[in-house]
C-alpha cells in the first residue's frame, strides 16, 4: 500500500467508526434531551441510568436464560429490548420519589436555588447508583457478547486492491437499531397526543395547564422515556463495549456535549449532536494519541458551550 492509500484507508475507517458509534451516542443524547431539554433538569445520573440499562440487559441475558432461549446472536438484542421497560419504570419511580420534590411546575419559575437542588440531588443519585452497583455487581468488566461483534463486513476495495472499510457487524446492527429507535421516538413525539403534550409542557408549562395538560405527569413521563432511551443506547453499546459500574462517568459529558451541540430542547438536534461527538472522537484519533480522544471531546464541548451556546441546530439562545 502506498502512503496516500494508507492515509485514505485510515480516514475512511475512522469515518465509518465515527458514524457507527455516533449513532449510538445520538440515541443516548436523545434520551438526555428528553430530560434536560424538556424539563431543564440537569441529571448527573443519566450516565448511570445507562450503566443500569447495561447491567439489567446483562442479567436478563444471563440470569433469565434469554441466551439459551434465543441463541447467542439474537439473544442479546432481545435482552436489551426487555431491559427497556424495566428502566422506564425505574425512571418513573426516581422522578416520582426524588426528582419531583425539587422540580416540576412548582419550581419552573424558580431561578438559581431550584436548579441548585436538582444538580446536587442527581449527583447523590449518581453516587448511590455507581457505588451501589459496585457493591452488587463487583467492579470487573462484563459485556453483552454477540458473535456479530467479532465479524465484519468489508466494503471496497476502492483503490485497486487496497483501501477497504471494515464494518463490525455488531456495531453496524447497533447503529441501525439506534436509528430505528430514534425514528420511532420521533414519530411518537410529533404525531401522538402524548408527544404533543410533552412538547407543549416543555414550551410553556403555564399555558399547558390552561390546555388541560397535567404538567407534572408530563414531566414524569418525559423523565421515564428519557431514562429508558438512554438505557437502550447503553445496552446497544454494551454489545461492543465491556462495562463496569463507573462506565456512566465516561459518557455523561459526551451526552451533555451532544445535547448542547444539538440545541437544547431539540430531539433530532440531540441526535445530530451525538453523531458529531462520535465523529470528533473517532476522527481525532487520526491526529491525536488515543488516550486524548476524550480530552478532544471535552475541549470540543467547552468550545461549543462558550462560543455557541445555542448549539448548531437550535433556534433559541439560552445561555443565562
Amino acid at each position: 500500500m502506498t502512503e496516500p492509500q494508507i492515509l485514505l484507508e485510515g480516514f475512511l475507517q475512522a469515518l465509518a467508526a465515527g458514524l457507527l458509534v455516533g449513532a449510538i451516542y445520538g440515541l443516548m443524547c436523545v434520551g438526555l434531551a428528553m430530560i434536560f431539554g424538556i424539563m431543564r433538569v440537569i441529571n448527573f445520573a443519566q450516565g448511570d441510568f445507562m450503566m443500569l440499562g447495561m447491567y439489567v440487559a446483562f442479567f436478563i441475558l444471563v440470569g433469565l436464560g434469554v441466551n439459551n432461549l434465543f441463541g447467542a446472536t439474537i439473544g442479546p438484542y432481545v435482552a436489551i429490548l426487555l431491559a427497556a421497560p424495566v428502566l422506564l419504570l425505574f425512571g418513573y419511580l426516581i422522578h416520582r420519589l426524588l426528582i419531583s420534590r425539587v422540580t416540576g411546575a412548582r419550581t419552573a419559575g424558580l431561578e438559581g436555588e431550584g436548579h441548585y437542588a436538582q444538580l446536587i440531588l442527581t449527583l447523590g443519585i449518581a453516587l448511590v447508583l455507581q457505588n451501589g452497583s459496585q457493591v452488587l455487581f463487583g467492579s470487573q468488566l462484563v459485556s453483552i457478547r454477540t458473535p456479530l461483534s467479532s465479524a465484519a463486513w468489508e466494503i471496497g476495495p476502492f483503490w485497486g486492491d487496497f483501501v477497504s472499510v471494515f464494518i463490525n457487524k455488531g456495531r453496524g446492527l447497533a447503529a441501525l437499531f439506534s436509528v430505528l429507535a430514534i425514528l420511532g421516538l420521533w414519530l411518537v413525539i410529533t404525531r401522538s397526543r402524548l408527544g404533543r403534550s410533552l412538547r407543549a409542557a416543555a414550551d410553556n408549562p403555564e399555558a399547558s395547564t390552561y390546555m388541560g395538560i397535567d404538567v407534572d405527569r408530563a414531566y414524569r413521563t418525559a423523565f421515564a422515556i428519557g431514562t429508558c432511551i438512554t438505557a437502550l443506547a447503553g445496552g446497544l453499546l454494551a454489545t461492543n463495549y465491556p462495562f463496569h459500574p463507573f462506565v456512566g462517568l465516561e459518557f455523561v459529558i459526551i451526552m451533555y456535549a451532544g445535547v448542547v451541540l444539538g440545541g437544547m430542547g431539540s430531539i433530532l438536534g440531540a441526535f445530530w449532536g451525538g453523531m458529531t461527538i462520535g465523529l470528533v472522537q473517532q476522527l481525532s484519533t487520526l491526529v491525536l494519541p488515543t488516550q486524548l480522544q476524550n480530552t478532544a471531546i471535552f475541549v470540543c464541548f467547552l468550545l461549543i458551550v462558550i462560543l455557541r451556546p445555542q448549539g448548531f441546530f437550535g433556534r433559541v439562545v439560552e445561555r443565562t
Binding site: F36, R40, I42, G112, H115, L119, I253, Y256, V260, P289, Q291, L292, Q293, N294, T295, F298, V299, F301, L302, V305, I306, P309, R319, T320
Partner: peptide
C-alpha cells in the same frame, strides 16, 4: 460568560480533560 447549568457542566469538563492529559 456562562451561568447556571452551563457553568456547572463546563466546570466538570476541565478536570476530566486534564485527567486524560496526565494519563497520556
Amino acid at each position: 460568560r456562562l451561568r447556571g447549568h452551563y457553568f456547572a457542566l463546563s466546570m466538570l469538563a476541565y478536570p476530566l480533560a486534564m485527567l486524560y492529559v496526565f494519563e497520556w
